[in-house]
Design a protein around this nucleic acid. Structure first.
Length: 392
DNA sequence: TCTGGGGTCCTAGGACCC
DNA sequence: TCTGGGGTCCTAGGACCC
């Protein structure tokens, strides 16, 4: 929406919803294994065996306490969270906290399926929708039913009917506040918030609740005795800008007042696409040469497949290397003409690899494609260059 | 045997062109 | 010959998010 809709009257406040699926991956698994409802369950780990049903009809599940290997918790049920197990936590660490929790392998195809279902259900009611990943969206409700509570309840019902899953919704005048308030009443929450509510409902919350203030910024703010969003709101702009930079400081000052003008973006071109893998155990560049070569080839193939599926080509190819000590480097190269096939990607990757110093064992390798263009546009450009005999 | 995999955006320096 | 500035592209790293 550009400009006021009426030449003499200002726009009414927007009504933006943030919808977040509750413990999404774990909840999808519970649809499949309803007998696990009420038990602590975590999803994650690459080599977790799937549950199996014996001849007597009894199910056997992997227990977290039996897990050995690398990997993190992708999602945990609310029962597992009560035991201190949260997403991002190492599986070995969570096994100590909740040895009897059930651990299930992640099944991304199933999650993508349910993701499509819930987005479709919302889209049919509220089509101005922004994708924010597999389990959350923003929706602009401004032009719909003026009763926000009725509208949001309807969205929750539509999502449940389409998927059997619950979600939490926050509705406010902007994305920033809606994101914060969808989290205030989880799970199965519905929270409405106006600008007048900001001082008593938002300011008492920790600054880290703001989307964009992560661990580093939170730590730095604490050093200045800034803990809550209210503390941030009371901090002078100049102070924030002198310590966090013009851009970041200015942004912090704005969002602490609950101000956010970002529109709901319904379409976006992908910027990059990548595949990476963490090895079961760290590999040595010389001793494990054969294995590494195979892994690099495979990553290039997967990136090429992804590009082909999306009908894209890439001008820039890059690699990521993570060492045993978790430090990492990236190298990339921009090519004279775009690539899409595994061999072309592989050649660029070799160029990049030559520029990396392998002083330590490595734990991860990644291949990335960026500078993405439509495959059709790419071939058109290359035909033109060819016509003018320009060497790309 | 802590610490996955897929992304976006920002910053900063250097090359290069006008 | 010296002194500039601005703009864009490329590369590397880092913070952050889901």
């Amino acid at each position: 929406m550009i400009g006021p809709r009426h030449p003499t009257r200002p726009d009414p406040p927007r009504r933006i919803a943030h919808l977040d699926m509750d413990a999404f991956f774990a909840s999808v698994e519970l649809l499949r294994y309803p007998q696990l409802r009420g038990h602590p369950v975590v999803v994650g780990g690459r080599r977790v065996p799937a549950p199996f049903q014996g001849a007597d009809g009894q199910w056997t599940y992997s227990q977290l306490g039996d897990y050995a290997g690398r990997g993190v918790v992708t999602t945990s049920t609310y029962e597992a969270r009560k035991l201190g197990v949260f997403s991002g936590m190492g599986l070995m660490q969570s096994a100590r906290l909740a040895p009897h929790a059930v651990v299930l392998p992640a099944d991304f195809e199933a999650y993508k399926h349910y993701s499509r279902l819930f987005k479709q259900a919302v889209f049919e009611v509220a089509p101005v929708m922004e994708d924010r990943g597999i389990d959350e969206i923003y929706v602009d409700l401004t032009d719909l039913d003026p009763d926000s509570h009725r509208l949001a309840s309807g969205l929750k019902r539509a999502v449940f009917e389409a998927t059997g899953l619950s979600c939490s919704i926050g509705v406010s005048p902007n994305k920033l506040l809606s994101k914060i308030c969808s989290d205030l009443d989880k799970p199965d929450g519905l929270t409405l918030l106006s600008m007048e509510d900001v001082p008593h409902r938002i300011w008492p919350l920790p600054a880290s609740k703001i989307n964009g203030i992560g661990p580093k910024a939170t730590e730095k703010l604490k050093q200045f005795d800034i803990h809550t969003i209210g503390d941030l709101a009371r901090t002078p702009l100049q102070f924030l800008q002198s310590h966090f930079g013009l851009q970041m400081g200015g942004w912090m000052h704005q969002v602490a007042q609950g101000i956010d003008d970002r529109p709901v973006v319904t379409e976006r071109d992908p910027k990059s696409l990548s595949r990476e893998t963490t090895f079961e155990s760290n590999l040595h560049v010389r001793h494990d040469r054969a294995a590494l070569t195979q892994i690099v080839d495979e990553l290039c193939r997967r990136v090429a497949d992804d590009l082909a599926r999306k009908q894209l080509r890439a001008k820039t190819i890059g690699i990521k290397v993570k060492y045993a000590d978790f430090s990492q480097v990236t190298r990339d190269i921009t090519l004279a003409s775009s690539v899409g096939d595994a061999l072309g990607i592989r050649r660029a990757v070799s160029d990049c690899l030559k520029r990396v110093a392998f002083h330590d064992r490595i734990r991860l390798l990644g291949v990335r494609a960026s500078g993405l263009i439509q495959a059709q546009a790419a071939s058109r450009i290359e035909r033109q260059l060819d016509f003018w005999s320009i060497d790309p």
